[in-house]
Amino acid sequence: MSAPGKTAPRMGGPVLEVQGLVKRYGAVAAVDGLDLAVEAGEVFGLLGPNGSGKTTMILILLGLTEPTRGRVSVLGLDPLRQPLAVKRAVGYLPDSVGFYDQMTARENLRFTAKLMDVPRREIERRIGSALERVGLGQVGDRRVGGFSHGMRQRLGVAEVLVKDCRIAILDEPTNGLDPQSTTELLGLIRQLRDDGRTVLLSSHMLSLVQTVCDRVALINRGRIGLTGAVDALRDRVLGGSYVIEVEAVGLPLAEVLRDLEGVGRAEMTGRRSAKIHAVEDIRPAIAERIVQRGGALQRLAMHQPSLDDVYARYFEEVRNAA
């Protein structure tokens, strides 16, 4: 027996903490020395290709799989020794979630609500408001068998809402959704954060995650490669490089650009257009030079590198290094 204080979730500090986590399946290491800390109230994105160990790590966080080595702490609780307390505090939306098809949405939620220790008189109220929030209020009494993939995914979010937990872990929530459903789901994730919940999100769909995550970790072959805010990651991986496209008439463009300060490399993409790789944003200097030399500036655009570029570049580097 333990004192009640021992199983009560801790306040303050990182809510999810993973240190030196290793999980081996035979000779294969699915997770290979992973460190991670997620702070309270943030949306944390776990990004990596398929098979990089994201789901395995999530299962370990929930105490559903035992790690080979390493320390895991969820709200100060050990998922191996106190799995019930951990699972009470964490809502989980698995990769392409399934429901009992012959039961209605409401019945499905009622069943899990009973397992979750939701107080009996609270159940119906919570289910009603959760279904409204995810936009399934009208179809709550229909069988889940007729639901689309997007509706099931939203029903999964409703389950997390019914649980009313401090941490929500979503595994590939936007996988296989059409753009409309994706946008709706991302909105729901933002709402989860606005409620004051901590959200851990895994995905390989970077451009989407970029719009909701406060911090991101790139994970590859069971290890965290990089962690940080999206902007910081961009600068670190791409080394602060800017790509500027110029189009101008009435002057020899290549010659004009050659001796401009800050231009790393300029390549002509047409007779009147060029692509410039620069170390900083030198658009004003380019515009000034062209106008001075009597040319007519037709287009000047900077290509904003997205997380996709970071991702592609990072995993390219990792592959080359291997």
Partner: peptide, 11 residues
């Protein structure tokens, strides 16, 4: 039915 992990994630 892919309900196992959702079910076992309950307490």
């Amino acid at each position: 039915r892919r309900t196992m992990s959702r079910l076992l994630a309950q307490p």
